[in-house]
């Protein structure tokens, strides 16, 4: 595969786009703030000694609403894209998506369980409800992925093909479980469930960023260490083994990182599709298949793309808001089709 861009150009432009996305995400929203106010509020948040008179509104909007939301978008986008790279590397297939190992459907099942049973017990305590939902989603994703991995193992070897099939079967099973909970749910619960399935960065707060930050750090630091091994895996499993890669360990790490990363992202923002599929795909076209470039580039591009999608989500119907999963699918699916058609001709 030829590369279209030199690495230096790529990272420079990705970095600039990343910063632009952050700035726009802080500067734009249904409340229109003067440019100068956003800048001053931003600088004050960074600790710059600027007089805060007349800035209360801007500081609140930028500091308490837009900044946590922007950070959430950066983290979720980054970890989804990284997991996409890991899965496409593991399955040696550019169409692989973090959903293949069952993490998204498991998380959806966990969330449905929390939402429906929570309301069945007369509603959870207000303070606890969001955490329980996130925890159930996270554990559901982790549990189903662990099961998929376990089913793929035989005689100390992990068969990727078996994992793929087990992933499909368990996804269907989890889907049936979600369907059952949907049937049991009352009207109000149904709406909550539907919206959760479409994802949103709405209502982000600093307290809820910490667990995600921790997970993203682990994934973002771990995966690049295995970039060379992922490159070797591209040649095939036995080739990688001959090159001295501990293939079984690598597979376990890839599955674990994906489950952890996507599980945490879904727990924080609901199901957001297409980022994990499109971002690595696009970047591979731009810089080639070398994972040493692909991983850090995906980290930047994933966050950037999700922030742009979120801008659409919050501005298009303002003062109401569109679930972000709709936006990413509307951008992602046609783009994917475009790639397909272009690749064919």
């Amino acid at each position: 595969m030829k590369r279209l861009l030199a690495p230096r150009t790529l990272f420079l432009s990705l970095g600039l786009l990343w910063l632009l996305a952050i700035w726009l995400s802080l500067a734009l929203g249904p409340v229109s703030l003067p440019f100068v106010d956003t800048l001053r509020a931003g600088l004050r948040l960074l600790g710059a000694p600027i007089a805060g008179q007349g800035l209360e509104q801007a500081e609140l909007i930028v500091g308490q609403i837009r900044l946590p939301r922007t950070l959430l978008g950066l983290l979720v986008g980054a970890v989804l894209a990284l997991s996409g790279v890991a899965m496409q590397g593991l399955f040696r297939n550019p169409l692989a998506d973090p959903g293949l190992v069952g993490v998204a459907s498991g998380a959806a099942l966990g969330a449905a369980l929390a939402i429906v049973l929570g309301s069945g017990f007369g509603g959870l305590p207000e303070a606890l409800a969001p955490y329980l939902l996130s925890l159930c989603a996270f554990l559901g994703g982790l549990g189903v992925t662990a099961l998929v991995y376990r089913l793929g193992r035989h005689n100390g070897r992990t068969s990727v093909a078996t994992m793929l099939l087990a992933g499909i079967a368990l996804t269907a099973l989890a889907g049936a479980g979600v369907g059952l909970f949907t049937y049991l749910a009352d009207d109000a619960t149904l709406r909550t469930l539907t919206f959760w399935n479409l994802g949103s960065l709405n209502g982000a707060s600093y307290q809820r960023l910490w667990p995600l930050l921790l997970v993203v750090c682990v994934v973002a630091l771990w995966l690049p260490r295995r970039a060379q091994a992922l490159n070797a895996l591209l040649l095939g499993e036995s080739e990688a083994r001959h090159l001295g890669v501990e293939v079984e360990t690598l597979k376990r790490e890839l599955v674990f990182c994906t489950a952890l990363g996507v599980g945490a992202a879904v727990a924080a923002a609901g199901l957001i599709g297409f980022i994990g599929l499109v971002v690595p795909h696009l970047l591979r076209m731009l810089v080639g298949p070398d994972h040493r470039l692909l991983l850090p580039a995906s980290l930047l591009a994933g966050g950037t793309l999700l922030l742009f999608a979120d801008l659409v989500a919050r501005l298009l119907l303002a003062p109401a808001e569109l679930p972000i999963g709709i936006v990413t699918a509307f951008i992602g699916a046609p783009f994917f089709l475009f790639l397909l058609i272009k690749g064919r001709g």
């Binding site: 249904p30 909007i61 609403i65 207000e126 209502g203 003062p319």
Partner: peptide, 27 residues
Amino acid sequence: RQLSAEGILSLRPDVLVGTEEMGPPPV
């Protein structure tokens, strides 16, 4: 149940009224 904080604030309201169904709580 899916209100947006900034969206509401952009209308510069003095008061937001709703039932216990209104949410999400962080917003």
